[in-house]
Nucleic acid binder design. Structure first.
Length: 237
DNA sequence: CTTAAAATAT
DNA sequence: AATATTTTAA
């Protein structure tokens, strides 16, 4: 079906907002501990990294008692506010994943929110892999090169796994391949799904635990009326 | 309900 | 580190 290929490109195009759009996002995250404290989960495609830990339920996994709670991370690296556009070139710059409040150390007892691989973040990832070469493209190195604060090796490893699978799949498999686009450069439809329909769920209306904060969040992402607000200015496209 | 992304376990 | 499995979000 040719609808398919036209769609994938469409989707891909859809997912990249203007840099300006995501610019104001630099510090648009609710402080992690706050979010976690209120158990705010945004089904609204709001903040990228803001996810909530399942609180109030029975912990599904408890076996394999190997759980010294890892340090959340070194918290905030001081980000020089001087540059309006900190990163424009390749690497050498450090990106900064949602830390939210500077000076707030979530520290102990907080589960790390689910990471959302935004296109920009993925781009950075791909860039890193490309520049490292297949032999050095291991999670640790990639993570280091990406220099994204808050990004753990596990995150990269998991993503790398999927990325490799994706490559393998397109390498052998279907030829359907990208549409007649002049055979030019195709980005990776790797991150295919960004926004979906709100899918109304009957019976259980959205009960916002903390309307005030949610409102705050919404105003943050609603700025411009776009759908997805993601991360920091990777600014590279 | 289904699928896929991310986390987690091995 | 790589792969498999499970959990969680869209």
């Amino acid at each position: 079906m040719r609808e398919d290929d036209s769609n994938w490109f469409n989707r891909w195009a859809e997912e990249l907002p203007s840099p300006e759009e995501l610019m104001p996002l630099s510090q648009t995250l609710i402080t992690p501990d706050l979010a976690l404290a209120f158990d705010i989960r945004n089904s609204n495609t709001a903040a990228a990294v803001v996810a909530a830990a399942n609180n109030g339920g029975s912990p599904p996994r408890a076996h394999t008692h190997q759980g010294p709670p890892p340090p959340p991370l070194s918290s905030s690296q001081l980000q020089p506010p001087s540059s309006t556009q900190p990163n424009s070139s390749e690497f050498g710059d450090s990106a900064d994943l949602g830390s939210g409040a500077a000076g707030e150390e979530p520290a102990r007892t907080l589960k790390r929110p689910r990471l959302v691989w935004t296109p920009q973040l993925h781009k950075r990832f791909v860039d890193a892999v490309a520049h490292l070469g297949i032999k050095n493209a291991v999670p640790k190195t990639i993570m280091q090169l990406m220099s994204v604060d808050g990004l753990t090796r596990e995150n990269v490893a998991s993503h790398l796994q999927k990325y490799r699978l994706y490559l393998k799949r397109m390498q052998v498999g279907h030829f359907g391949s990208p549409p007649t686009n002049g055979g030019g450069q195709f980005e990776h439809p790797f991150l295919a799904r960004q926004s979906q329909q709100p899918v109304h769920r009957m019976g259980q209306p959205v009960h916002n635990p903390v309307p005030g904060y949610v409102e705050d969040l919404e105003s943050a992402n609603a700025t411009g009326g776009r759908k997805v607000l993601t991360l920091f200015p990777t600014g590279d496209d």
